[in-house]
């Protein structure tokens, strides 16, 4: 069968053949059994393809995408609270009264940090996680792809936990009526916590306080924390929200020890 006939057959099946091409094809089909056979077989295939059902996107996908899109102008992305120098971190905001006075300087310093800020508690082995074994405030409702909605004054927004090959991303979208501090850190166990910049925003500095990330929210903001637990033991991440020095909300996520290590 020549190339012209093959093209005519495909154009006809795709509904793209002109009347003249249709007449031409009809003559070919009338005289050639091979062409008739090819036409019929190709039509059957295309009907099978066109009849295949499309799949629904998974639930929560749209929300997950929207959570990654900043809702504020670049100018309002978060600045950073830097804890007191030399202070060994413990859970909760450090420095107390003195900390507030250092916020502006810390933010200015942190804003000079470009790219992705990285906090490394310990160089861990990477692992594959079983989201079914997650526990904690965030993990309980729907392990692996859980989301948590924050509602009310002064804190509203969503925290979305998303599974990746090497760990999890905690996507945080916040709308605060006044500056709210967030401290994210390891309550126990080794893990790597990585702060990512808001999309399209100015660099968001993150504190270099080993083991924790401090961010001061103001207005509507979005950012991500990439969490990579270790294979050597369970890890607990705590998210604490502070209005000044007062803890107004706390969430915990327990990531189990991995089954095996994997590294790029």
């Amino acid at each position: 069968m020549d190339q012209k006939t093959i093209e005519l057959i495909h154009r006809d099946i795709d509904g793209l053949a002109s009347p003249e091409e249709q007449r031409e094809l009809a003559l070919v089909l009338e005289s050639s059994e091979d062409a008739r056979d090819e036409h019929a077989r190709m039509r059957t295939l295309c009907e099978l393809l066109d009849g295949a059902t499309s799949a629904d996107p998974p639930p929560g996908l749209r929300d997950a995408i929207l959570a990654r899109i900043p809702v504020a102008s670049a100018a309002s992305f978060p600045s950073v609270a830097r804890p007191a120098a030399g202070r060994r971190p413990s859970w909760g905001p450090s420095g107390r009264g003195a900390r507030r006075s250092r916020l502006g300087l810390a933010a200015a310093l942190a804003a000079t940090v470009g790219g992705v800020a990285l906090l490394l508690f310990r160089a861990p082995d990477f692992q594959q996680l079983d989201p079914a074994s997650l526990a904690g405030t965030i993990g309980q409702p729907a392990p692996g792809t859980a989301s948590l909605r924050l509602e009310g004054e002064p804190l509203a927004g969503t925290i979305f936990l998303q599974r990746h090959t090497h760990g999890f991303t905690i996507e945080i979208t916040m709308d605060t009526s006044r500056p709210i501090g967030l401290v994210a850190g390891a309550a126990e166990g080794p893990l790597m916590l990585q702060g990512l910049l808001p999309l399209g925003g100015e660099p968001t500095g993150l504190s270099e306080d080993a083991g924790r990330i401090h961010v001061l929210h103001s207005g509507r903001q979005h950012y991500s924390l990439v969490v990579t637990p270790s294979v050597s033991g369970a890890s607990t991440i705590q998210l604490g929200f502070y209005d000044g020095d007062a803890l107004i909300r706390e969430d915990r996520l327990v990531l189990p020890a991995g089954k095996g290590s994997e590294r790029n």
């Binding site: 093959i6 093209e7 495909h10 056979d37 077989r41 190709m42 099978l48 393809l49």
Partner: peptide
């Protein structure tokens, strides 16, 4: 595009027919 599409369909048809599906 046409060349790739026509070839792809022929490959698909051959594969499906070999699996007993899609034959005319």
């Amino acid at each position: 595009v046409k060349s790739r599409l026509f070839t792809a369909r022929q490959l698909l048809r051959d594969r499906l027919e070999a699996d007993g599906i899609g034959g005319a």
